[in-house]
Write a protein that binds this DNA or RNA. Structure first.
Lengths: 231, 231
DNA sequence: GAGTGGTCTAGACCACCCT
DNA sequence: GGGTGGTCTAGACCACTCG
């Protein structure tokens, strides 16, 4: 574990376990340097990390302070694949409703930067939380990169499998949000009448060397989902 | 202007003016060090900046590459106050429909961390783009911090006025997104039938020393708005 | 003016990719 | 093995805040 990550983890943990309030002053840079016996730059790196994550904010000439989100039950946008770790306490359940290999349509090919007709895994899942339907997820994985998938993998965490099983690391992602009226099958899956409001999130995930491997469309139930974003 | 910002600006400009494609390789760290005559750390700082912004991605042992957004017409979440600079070419127009000083309700007091009854500026505006209504904006500014506002200011860029006129600097922000059905006045303003889909974005802006000064509710027209998010 | 965060340097060493 | 990005250090100096 890298020093700056390790220290970041410890500070975050401290904020959490001691349940520090927004605006609480944390030890100064100098104190952290002494405490962890590292150079000042390493501490500043750590703090930058935590700042971007939204855990703290720094005020020049004054100090370092705790930043806390003040609403519960919101899904954090800007984290891997929506869920894990966000709605902490709440368990998100996935039910697979479709799993097959299909040929890429034009839309898929555009988003995955591949040729029309290339093989992709199609995975459709319904995500729910405490029995409430949260979203319908329609994911396409580029078969050339994701060489193997099976039902037991997609019933769990696909991304964990990619990291640990296939040694594919997520580099970055693009997300496109738009609001629509529900139509046809999606209405049924979400358990909503036709023409209900719905948030569509289209996500593209790239490996750490910049190749897209996952294009997903997430249809969110408007009454059971709300989202959060920092900075 | 700080070196690392200056260099970041130049690299961004280069990507834009030369219209470099996604995946184009940029000069290596060593080359940049030589070119700008700064230390390696400064270059790495610059690149971190650009990476977070979504302009580039770095691959260890391989190089630095251009990252481009591949869809047009999306509003970038995660930038100051939604608009300026996003829908570049397109001019966003603001029409003020309400401007007064009111007492903070419980909702406002909670979000602005002040007392119920404290004075706040209320500004309601309709944002449109090429004649199409984009959103209705309902903003509350803490009067204790924003000591003065007038119509000509709020018809332009409020945030620019805060920076330049009042020397108030935006530190960070929280955004909460949820989807609803339009009701009453909002429907009328948006020019939509009752119970149309609508995205509500609640934003809280904090000064650089951590005090909230602006709580805004933005009601977006679902057919005229879509959003974008990176990393 | 003391304390505290922010920028910048020069250089050592490590980790990873590619050929 | 050469090239390239990533981490870390130690120290100089600057900019801001607050009492």
């Amino acid at each position: 574990m890298l020093k700056y990550q390790e220290i970041a983890r410890e500070i975050e943990k401290k904020i959490k376990t001691e349940n520090l309030k927004q605006g609480t002053k944390l030890p100064s840079v100098g104190e952290l340097v002494a405490q962890y016996k590292v150079s000042k730059n390493t501490i500043l790196r750590t703090l930058k990390e935590l700042e971007v994550k939204g855990a703290i904010y720094q005020v020049q000439g004054s100090g370092i302070f705790v930043r806390r989100r003040n609403r519960k039950g919101y899904i954090t946008l800007l984290e891997h694949k929506g869920f894990s770790g966000d709605l902490d306490y709440l368990e998100v359940e996935s039910k697979v409703i479709n799993f097959e290999i299909v040929a890429a349509t034009e839309e898929i090919a555009n988003n995955l930067q591949c040729e029309i007709g290339d093989k992709v895994y199609l995975v459709k899942r319904i995500q729910s939380i405490q029995g409430q339907i949260l979203s319908v997820e329609e994911s396409y994985y580029k078969k050339r990169l994701i060489t193997f998938l099976n039902r037991s993998i997609i019933e769990g965490s696909i991304f964990q499998y990619l990291e640990e099983g296939l040694n594919i690391h997520v580099g970055f992602s693009d997300k496109y949000l738009s609001v629509h009226k529900t139509k046809g099958q999606i209405s049924k899956y979400l358990g909503l009448p036709e023409n209900s409001p719905m948030l569509l999130v289209e996500e593209i995930y790239y490996t750490n060397n910049g190749e897209p491997f996952d294009f997903s469309k997430l249809y969110y139930h408007y009454e059971h989902s709300q989202f959060f974003l920092q900075s």
